[in-house]
Design a binder for these strands. Structure first.
Length: 423
RNA sequence: GGAGGAAUACCCAAGUCUGGCUGAAGGGAUCGGUCUUGAAAACCGACAGGGGUGUAACAGCCCGCGGGGGUUCAAAUCCCUCUUCCUCCUCCA
C-alpha cells in the first residue's frame, strides 16, 4: 500500500513512476475523487459529533440539576440521525477507498531498470563455471527415476499433476538441504529460526500483498476462509502484524523452512515435467524487518546470503536486477538468482530477493518506535534462501556422472550421513 | 462436540448489576528528581497509546475499555454477533 498523503501530494509524479510497470492503472485514477469525498464527509460528521458531545454534557448537567432538557434532547435526536447517515456513507466510501489502495502496486526504486518484461532484466553478476559434459547428460526427472529417488507417477495417482514423492536418498537429500540452509543462516548470517503455520487467514494474505488481487494463485480452504501459504514470507512477515517494534530490536532477521502451495493458475503447459513447477514445494525463506534508511543495504546483504548457498553448493548462477515490467506487485526492487539447469541450457529462477520498503508494513501495520519515540513503518524484505526443489534439480543435473550416479556436494555430506554419491 | 467463565491502558486490576462531572480509580513496572561516596530503600514528580482529520508547524476536533453491529439525546456499563483465552466433560496425534 502506498502512503496516502504522499500520493495526494505527488500524484502525477507517482503515477508516472507506476506507469513504468506497464500495468493497468485505472484504479489509481479513482484515488483523487474518493480521497476528497472521504475527507469532506469526515469533516462534516466530526463537526456534528463534536456538537453532540458538547450538548450531551449540557443534558447531563441539566438532569443532575433536575431541570428540563427535552428541547436539547429533541435537537440531538436529529443530529444523531444525520450522524448515522453520514457514517454509513463514509463506511461505503472507505471500503471503496481501501480496495483502490490495496490494488495499487509498489513504486519501483530509481535503481530498477525500466523495461517491459523478462527480456529487459539486467544481469548484475555471474558466478561459477557452466559444466561441460563429455557424455550425454540427462534431465533431472530421468536421473531421479533411474536412481529411484523421485516418483512423479505415483504422486499423480495419489494426488494429481505437479506433485512428487521423494524417495530414499532423494528424500534425504531434500531434508539435508533444508537443514544445511537453516543451520547456515542461523549460525553464520544472524537469522532466528521460525517454523510457521502453513495455513493463514485472509488478513495475513492481504498484509503481504497476495490479496486481494491474486486470489486465484492461492489454495483456499473454503469453509474456514483460510489459505495454504504460497511462501513462508506470509506467516513470517505477518508474525509482527499490527505491532510496534522497538528500534533496538531492528533489524529483525528470520529464517523459516516451510512447504509452499501454489495453484499455478495461468501456467498450464509450462514446466510440466520434473520438479521445477510444483503445486507443493519446500523452501527456506529469509525475512528481514529493518529501519527504512537501511533497507537497500539489507537487500544487498540478503541477496548475498542466498548466493552463499549456491556458492557453497557449487552451483553456477547469475543475479538479475528485475526490470519495472517484471518486478511483481509488491516489490520496490528485486533480484532474482538464477541457477544453471543443464537440461534446459538455461538459467532458471531459484531465489527471489525483494525490498518492499514500507509497502507491506503499511498493509500489515508493522511499525517501530525510533530513537526519538516517533512511530514509523519498518521496511520489509525477503528472499528465498533457497527454493529446495529447484536446488535438488540443479544438483541432480549439474552433479550427474556418466554412470548415472550423482555426486553429493561436499557441504551436504555431513547432512547425508557421510554419503558421497547417490547411485 | 457439550457446559460454564473471562477479555479494561506496558503489566496487574477497580468500574459493568443501578447508562450521564469515569475521555477511565488503585498498584506495579518505566522515566526524571530528592537523599546517598555509589547503589538499594524511602519520598516527590511524569506516565493513553494508537489511528483519523486538520495545520507551514503547533493547536483544535473525531474515534479508541477484544472486533463488528444495535438500543439511547448519551454506552466500558444494556442487547445481538464474532474472535481469542481459561476451567470441566467428550474426543484426539
Amino acid at each position: 500500500m502506498l502512503d496516502r498523503k504522499q500520493l495526494r501530494k505527488d500524484f502525477a509524479e507517482i503515477k508516472a513512476k507506476l506507469a513504468k510497470r506497464g500495468e493497468d492503472l485505472s484504479d489509481l485514477d479513482k484515488f483523487g475523487e474518493l480521497d476528497e469525498r472521504r475527507r469532506a464527509i469526515i469533516q462534516e460528521v466530526e463537526q456534528l459529533k463534536a456538537e453532540r458531545n458538547e450538548t450531551s454534557k449540557q443534558i447531563s448537567q441539566l438532569k443532575r440539576e433536575k431541570k428540563d432538557a427535552s428541547e436539547l434532547i429533541e435537537r440531538m435526536q436529529q443530529v444523531s440521525k444525520t450522524i448515522k447517515e453520514l457514517d454509513n456513507e463514509l463506511n461505503e466510501i472507505e471500503a471503496q477507498f481501501d480496495q483502490v489502495m490495496l490494488g495499487i502496486p509498489n513504486i519501483p526504486h530509481e535503481s530498477v531498470p525500466v523495461g517491459e518484461d523478462e527480456e529487459d532484466n539486467v544481469e548484475v553478476r555471474k558466478w561459477g563455471d557452466i559444466p561441460s559434459f563429455s557424455f550425454e547428460h540427462k534431465p533431472h526427472w530421468e536421473i531421479g527415476k533411474d536412481l529411484d529417488i523421485l516418483d512423479f507417477e505415483r504422486a499423480a495417482k495419489v494426488t494429481g499433476s505437479r506433485f512428487v514423492f521423494y524417495k530414499g536418498l532423494g528424500a534425504k537429500l531434500e531434508r539435508a538441504l533444508i537443514n544445511f540452509m537453516l543451520d547456515y543462516h542461523t549460525e553464520h548470517h544472524g537469522y532466528e529460526e521460525l517454523l510457521p503455520p502453513y495455513i493463514v487467514n485472509r488478513n495475513s494474505m492481504i498484509g503481504t500483498g497476495q490479496l486481494p488481487k491474486f486470489e486465484e494463485d492461492a489454495f483456499l480452504i473454503e469453509d474456514w476462509d483460510y489459505f495454504l501459504i504460497p511462501t513462508a514470507e506470509v506467516p513470517v512477515t505477518n508474525f509482527h502484524r499490527d505491532e510496534i517494534l522497538s528500534v533496538d530490536d531492528l533489524p529483525k532477521k528470520y529464517v523459516a523452512y516451510s512447504a509452499c502451495f501454489r495453484s499455478e493458475a495461468g501456467s498450464a503447459g509450462r514446466d510440466t515435467r520434473g520438479l521445477i513447477r510444483m503445486h507443493q514445494f519446500n523452501k527456506v525463506e529469509l525475512v528481514q524487518f529493518v529501519k527504512p534508511e537501511d533497507s537497500y543495504d539489507a537487500l544487498e546483504e540478503l541477496t548475498g546470503h542466498a548466493e552463499k548457498m549456491l556458492q557453497l553448493l557449487g552451483l553456477p548462477y547469475r543475479v538479475m536486477n528485475m526490470c519495472t515490467g517484471d518486478l511483481g506487485f509488491t516489490a520496490a526492487k528485486k533480484y532474482d538468482l538464477e541457477v544453471w539447469i543443464p537440461s534446459q541450457q538455461k538459467y532458471r529462477e531459484i531465489s527471489s530477493c525483494s525490498n518492499f520498503e514500507a509497502f507491506q508494513a503499511r498493509r500489515a501495520g508493522i511499525r517501530y518506535r525510533d530513537e526519538d519515540g516517533k512511530v514509523k513503518y519498518v521496511h520489509t524484505l525477503n528472499g528465498s534462501g533457497l527454493a529446495i526443489g529447484r536446488t535438488v534439480t540443479a544438483i541432480l543435473e549439474n552433479y550427474q556422472q556418466e554412470d548415472g550416479s550423482v555426486v553429493v556436494p561436499e557441504v551436504l555430506r555431513p547432512y547425508m550421513g557421510g554419503i558421497e554419491v547417490i547411485k
